[in-house]
Design a protein around this nucleic acid. Structure first.
Length: 397
DNA sequence: TGCAAGTCAATACC
DNA sequence: GGTATTGACTTGCA
């Protein structure tokens, strides 16, 4: 966007050009506002593409990074939208999701790691906040300018329809009327029914999906999507729990886990194996309770990898105590992200002023839990192995 | 073909 | 007005 250039005056980020090929970057109708898909150039890394950097990046502590980013954004009164569109090339909702529920590094695909590398680089840039502030000012200026001109023209300020515009159609750049599909909003009863169905069968057959759809008067695609999304979101909740259980830090240390904080809607939506009774998700680890709640009730914690690959609460020395902070001395070298992990060997929740949660404070409890987790994972591993052999006689126990 | 992962974008919520 | 939630979609993989 124009504002990007005016602030940076730099050659484009390799990713920016890539992103722009993914998203149409036609003339900027927003009057200079940044758009998702056009992140700022990476400071001091112009010779490397972001993909290369992601590939070369050591393990990053996604929780520490998101924590720090949230902190910086809040402290400087910068919004997720601006940050997402400018720095990450993502929309506000995606940023919110990423910041609230970061997946551990080892669970992320290369693409999923990209925003975290960007965040880390942004944190390492001593002028990061400054640049974003400039961007904010420019946006405001552009907005005021549009407002003035539109007022004089007698048009709506934003040039958009007020209220939901779906079904009313919106004007595409080409001048074609495009009907937007109305967003399906599932009612509490429908959600409840779907959750019950999920508890019985996390992977329903096409026939079951059909039945559910007709019973609930929904499209089959809606039911399919719901199951996909639900599985995916439950899995993510589990990742968070995993981290909490393993290291006593992460979002939970701030009460951030959606499963632990009260559901806003009061529907218990966000993590719903809480209601599950013996739900079996055959893909997530045969026989493992589909939700942590049940495991916890039995005094158990679930970790997905033997030994609880407790890698996330690492790398904090810099990210949370100065490295990542704008203007900090940490990571000033071109690839500061590499120094991050190297500095992490001694890091822990205690070194970061992040209170450890629950029994993780007690080393003995922690050890016990890890042993249990390792044992559990061993069992899961064997079950998975067994499951891959159709003939029960080949099962190894 | 079905799934996971990642993301968008509408809308709910604060 | 900013943030959180969530249905839908795209992509890549097996």
């Amino acid at each position: 966007s124009g504002s990007d250039e005016s602030v940076n005056g730099l050659a484009g980020d390799p990713l920016a050009s890539q992103s722009s090929s993914l998203k149409p970057q036609s003339e900027d109708p927003s009057g200079g506002e940044s758009q998702p898909g056009t992140p700022l150039p990476l400071p001091g890394h112009s010779s490397l593409s972001i993909q290369e950097m992601v590939a070369m990046s050591p393990e990053l502590d996604t929780y520490a990074i998101t924590k720090k980013v949230k902190e910086v954004l809040t402290d400087n009164n910068l919004g997720q939208r601006l940050f997402g569109e400018t720095i990450l090339g993502l929309t506000q909702g995606s940023v919110s999701d990423l910041l609230a529920r970061p997946k551990p590094w080892h669970k992320l695909s290369l693409k999923g790691r990209e925003p975290f590398v960007r965040m880390q680089l942004w944190l390492q840039d001593p002028h990061s906040v400054e640049k974003l502030m400039d961007m904010k000012r420019l946006e405001k200026k552009a907005y005021m300018k549009r407002r003035l001109s539109s007022l004089s023209d007698g048009h709506s300020v934003d040039g958009v329809l007020s209220g939901p515009d779906y079904m009313q159609g919106s004007q595409s750049p080409g001048g074609q009327q495009q009907l937007k599909k109305p967003r399906v909003v599932l009612g509490p009863e429908e959600k409840e029914a779907l959750k019950k169905a999920y508890q019985q069968k996390p992977y329903p057959s096409p026939k079951t999906i059909e039945e559910l759809a007709s019973q609930l008067n929904l499209k089959t695609s809606t039911v399919i999507n719901w199951f996909h999304n639900y599985r995916s979101r439950i899995r993510r909740e589990l990742f968070i729990e995993e981290i909490q259980a393993a290291g006593g830090m992460g979002p939970g240390s701030e009460g951030g886990s959606p499963s632990l904080r009260g559901s806003k809607s009061g529907e218990g939506d966000s993590c719903d194996g809480t209601e599950s009774e013996g739900t079996v998700d055959t893909r997530q680890g045969l026989g493992m309770e589909d939700h942590r709640g049940a495991c916890k009730d039995q005094g158990m914690e679930v970790e997905s990898e033997a030994g609880g690959s407790n890698n996330s609460p690492s790398q904090l020395d810099c990210t949370t105590s100065g490295l990542a902070g704008p203007g900090s001395s940490c990571g000033q070298t071109g690839l500061g992200i590499f120094s991050l992990t190297e500095a992490s060997s001694t890091s822990s929740a205690s070194s970061t002023n992040i209170p450890a949660s629950g029994s993780a404070r007690n080393p003995r409890d922690n050890n016990l839990r890890k042993k249990k987790a390792a044992n559990l994972n061993n069992i899961i591993h064997r079950l998975e192995k067994a499951a891959s052999k159709e003939d029960p006689s080949e099962w190894e126990f």
